[in-house]
Design a binder for these strands. Structure first.
Lengths: 347, 347
DNA sequence: CGCTAGCACTCAAGGGAAATGAGTGCTGAT
DNA sequence: ATCAGCACTCATTTCCCTTGAGTGCTAGCG
């Protein structure tokens, strides 16, 4: 698709005005407000062309134009240029993180809070993919007969736990031995490799004939099979969606919030973005499979530790949101979070 | 306030119809539908009386009557009789809990899910007051230099953790000693008494001169001071509020959801109910201090283990909700949760 | 040939008058 | 005491008209 400079300017103007006002924008406004020195009639011709290309759309004959999803996409991909976040804003966000503890969960929660506050939209933060974090510590606690609480801690301080039912009752003393054995065995390996390591170990001779070892391994196997899969997500600031006039219609709002309720979908959505790119991504509603979310957009970015992409964070808002503000915020926040997760060099 | 039998019947009819339809109810409907064999004119007279007493209210001259908060209160306290939940429903709720693990958090989350699903309103479940649960295990993990992850497990399997910054760096070996010492010291005492016990211990001679002990105690002191206070709450099904026509007005809805956003208020609210009574309580919006919540009602009940009231759960909905359904559900769910929390006798 | 001024046309949105109907209060009869 | 009947009130709905923003088209201009 080729657009002349002027065509692009007109499209840009339409998108910008539409994002600002939410109303269809007419030719007159554009010819007046924006620097193109042509009459409204000319703009109309251009707009008619853009409409033919499927970039604009007219709600009804006597209304102005609204960008289509295709138009928005084209604008975002080929026309708009997004700056880095201003240093003033950067400082503000940094400050918001200042007081927060270094507790992992707390940090993620804080992140979602900050994002939703600064972008005035709903924010999502995906938990790190467990498989990528490294083993630090495991502990088995006997809660009651045949019921064992398994606690897993990753090197970065992420705590996971899972309640396990076991066929026979095991004393706390023995469980302590399990812990000691496993803590040594699994030291510092990525959680994603635990299963493999355990399987390997199970076939070693010294283990095959040692009841304690093999039970410990069997238990670990089961726990990692069932227990620690759950990736989770923090969603915050859904109320902000109420700010947008497009969601004053309760039915629409309902559909969308319902989609949020089922977190697994959002998780999958964010998870997908992890495989695609390293930087900020924009996914427009109509590009998602979920038709409940057709009317919203997602701006997301992965966060990392070192070179591994751990998880993702993002902002969810109406298609008509302030990309020029939100994109830099998302970008910076992701960087900041990555920075905070960076392991300091041991002194 | 004294009401004749007939007056009560009329009030009841108004409340019931209003709850069902959400519209002001007129005299004609009442004289027809409900078993009182009097004409609408007579009903009108009765209604006029009830209005004078402040139990009913007329939005405008030619509209029917709506119960006032006072009227609703009177109805709930003195007129309505709530049955136990039907056994069919009971079985359904039991079933919903069937598959769930015995993991504490999972259980609470499940509870909020079940409540919101069965009552078709928003549900809240307050975490147990930590102070009332008993000590099971504490563990200190060195995450990085001068940063220690403290994990606390209560006897019922509730896991809490907190990231602690400590002035000097302590090796994992030493931390393990801390754990062993404290696990013995604090065995099985209620968490609310930990601080006292620690303080006591600090003054004992054998501790005063032992560096390890006193450091461990100091650390515990600090953790329990700052870390484990946070009571939390699960809120689920807020979307259900959108079902009620009274909240299709976005502004109202906004106010209410905003109040939800700040969980601490809701926590305080539920926490208060814990001190009042043992059974189901109904708090009507106007009775709360928070004027944001004037338009909603809360039906809550404590849950317990044995004889101690641990926490509370409840349903939040419009003032006009189906009390006759929800009250029994809340009551039963609280009982069921208490039952599930019951510690089985050790075999 | 590209641009523009001008004009007729379209259509959503706003506003006001009239119709509708649910519900009341009061009165006089039973 | 209770009720039938009637006049009255007032929110809600419906309809129609006006308004104004915006378009497409065409003829004329540089």
């Amino acid at each position: 698709m080729e657009l002349s400079e002027r065509d692009q300017k007109v499209l840009e103007a339409v998108v910008n005005d539409y994002i600002k006002t939410g109303e269809p924008v007419g030719s007159r406004v554009i010819s007046k407000r924006h620097g193109l020195n042509v009459s409204s009639a000319t703009i109309r011709n251009v707009m008619a062309d853009l409409e033919e290309m499927g970039l604009l759309y007219q709600p009804h004959t006597s209304a102005g134009r609204v960008p289509t999803e295709k138009g928005l996409r084209f604008y975002l991909d080929s026309i708009a240029e997004f700056k880095k976040l201003e240093s003033k804003e950067r400082a503000l966000i940094r400050r918001a993180f200042q007081e927060s503890t270094r507790d992992f969960k707390e940090l993620l929660r804080k992140t979602s809070h900050v994002l939703s506050k600064f972008c005035k939209q709903a924010a999502v933060v995906l938990w790190p993919r467990l498989a990528l974090t490294r083993f630090k510590h495991i502990e088995f606690i006997r809660i009651r007969v045949r019921q064992i609480l398994v606690i897993l801690i990753s090197r970065s301080g992420l705590v996971q736990h899972y309640t396990l039912h076991w066929d026979e009752d095991i004393s706390q003393d023995e469980l302590d031995k399990f812990s000691r054995y496993l803590n040594e065995l699994l030291e510092d390996i990525p959680l994603g490799e635990v299963k493999k390591r355990v399987l390997n170990e199970m076939h070693k001779e010294k283990v095959l004939f040692d009841e304690l070892y093999s039970r410990a391994l069997a238990m670990t196997q089961q726990v990692f099979q069932a227990g620690f899969e759950n990736s989770d997500i923090y969603i915050e600031g859904q109320i902000n969606l109420l700010n947008s006039p497009e969601f004053t219609d309760v039915q629409r709002l309902r559909r969308i919030l319902e989609a949020f309720e089922d977190k697994s979908r959002i998780i999958r959505l964010l998870d997908m973005t992890l495989n695609v790119s390293e930087g900020v991504q924009i996914i427009l509603g109509p590009e998602m499979e979920l038709k409940e979310l057709h009317e919203i957009g997602l701006i997301s970015s992965p966060y990392r530790r070192g070179d591994t992409l751990l998880g993702a964070l993002g902002v969810i808002g109406p298609l008509r949101m302030d990309y020029s503000k939100i994109i830099p915020v998302v970008e910076f926040t992701a960087d900041l979070l990555s920075e905070l997760l960076e392991e300091p060099v041991e002194e």
